[in-house]
């Protein structure tokens, strides 16, 4: 495990080096002053002192709109177009052979990539569209110093300086950025910039640990132990009906969620060319489970909202051995009616 440091003042040089290898996506301000994750061109300031962006980095691996193939009279076009690495409304037709660096994403969002890997690469089927983008993605995680009151990463196995899902973990210190290689991809990255980096000193490592501890202390725990078992016993609890009464049935929670990955596939016909396109879908929508017969097995918000929670905290644990929640709190912060999933576990009791 290589540990290096780079002075904050030299960060631009590091980013320039990465730009020579691929596209660099980093936290930066948009026109309205909000911090978003976007491709940063030389000279565009990167913001490291931010909370978290509304849209999670999953858009880079699972674009919201992704062309899977085009065909005419049942014959696919050659070569089949491959969806690329873009922002929320891009991700279509871009060359996928470019390396993408996700620089400065939060540990919760990086941890979520492991959940997505499990879905798209973990079983006996591998999703080639996801796989191609994933292989070309290097994740440089920035340890979190600004937990919000909606954050609960420490209750789902993560933490403000969690390494899960990271290729490199960066920790902001007073004068430097401490860089720790976690994976072979990360080692490669650090060695390709070796001339810019100094060695990490023991006091720097100690400072990093101290900062991580301080951030973790600010995060309020949620009682999520044995979530799968507790939910198994609560399938028929009246709680679902009570809490979901206020759910508006929009898809904000799942579209912003870094682990939600359900999608729909539709064919769009223009002339005699058919475009097969994959788009995000959401279990809060009635259409999600509507059968061709007209029957809907999840007819009301109660069943739909229960499904969302059961999937994340029970089925994923039972089937894949991992929680599909990283505690980023986006669903809590952005819910138009402030529906807070933490209430379920509080009400369920131990």
């Amino acid at each position: 495990m290589t540990e290096k440091r780079i002075p904050h003042t030299d960060l631009d040089r590091l980013l320039d080096r990465l730009r020579g290898l691929g596209a660099v996506h980093a936290p930066t301000r948009d026109e309205s002053g909000d911090v978003i994750l976007a491709e940063v061109s030389p000279g565009k300031p990167v913001v490291l002192d931010y909370k978290n962006f509304p849209l999670s980095p999953k858009v880079f691996l699972l674009p919201q709109t992704q062309t899977l193939l085009r065909f005419t009279n049942g014959k696919p076009h050659e070569p089949a177009p491959v969806a690329g690495n873009g922002g929320p409304s891009q991700g279509d037709g871009r060359p996928p052979n470019r390396q993408a660096f996700l620089f400065g994403v939060r540990p919760c969002d990086a941890r979520a990539l492991l959940a997505l890997d499990e879905v798209f690469l973990g079983g006996d089927q591998r999703d080639p569209y996801y796989e191609r983008l994933r292989a070309k993605t290097v994740v440089i995680v920035l340890a979190c110093t600004r937990p919000m009151s909606s954050c609960f990463c420490t209750s789902v196995g993560g933490g403000p300086s969690d390494e899960a899902g990271a290729d490199v973990l960066a920790i902001g210190l007073e004068a430097d950025l401490l860089l720790r290689a976690i994976t072979p991809k990360g080692e490669d990255l650090l060695s390709s910039a070796a001339d810019l980096l100094g060695d990490a000193t023991p006091p720097a490592i100690e400072e990093a640990q101290e900062r991580a501890r301080k951030a973790a202390d600010q995060i309020a725990p949620v009682e999520l132990d044995r979530s799968a078992e507790r939910l198994r016993n609560a399938y028929d609890s009246p709680l679902w009906g009570i809490l979901s009464q206020k759910c508006l049935g929009c898809g904000t929670c799942s579209f912003l969620c870094p682990t939600c990955h359900c999608f729909d596939i539709t064919d769009e016909v223009r002339g005699d060319v058919v475009r097969r396109v994959r788009t995000w879908d959401c279990c809060a929508y009635p259409l999600f489970t509507l059968h061709a017969s007209g029957h809907n097995p999840r007819p009301t918000p109660k069943e739909r909202w229960r499904q969302r929670l059961m999937h994340k905290f029970r089925y994923a644990v039972e089937n894949l051995g991992r929680l599909f929640c990283v505690g980023c709190g986006r669903c809590i912060r952005n819910c138009p009616v402030s529906l807070d999933l933490r209430a379920v576990f509080r009400e369920l009791g131990a």
């Binding site: 849209l55 919201q64 929320p88 409304s89 508006l248 049935g249 929009c250 898809g251 904000t252 579209f255 912003l256 788009t279 995000w280 959401c282 929508y285 009635p286 259409l287 138009p336």
Partner: peptide
Amino acid sequence: RCIRCNACRQACPVCSCCKECLLD
């Protein structure tokens, strides 16, 4: 910037007008 989450439509009291929304 829109992510088509339908939050604007769902939060709107008068936008529950149609038996089945054109968009659905």
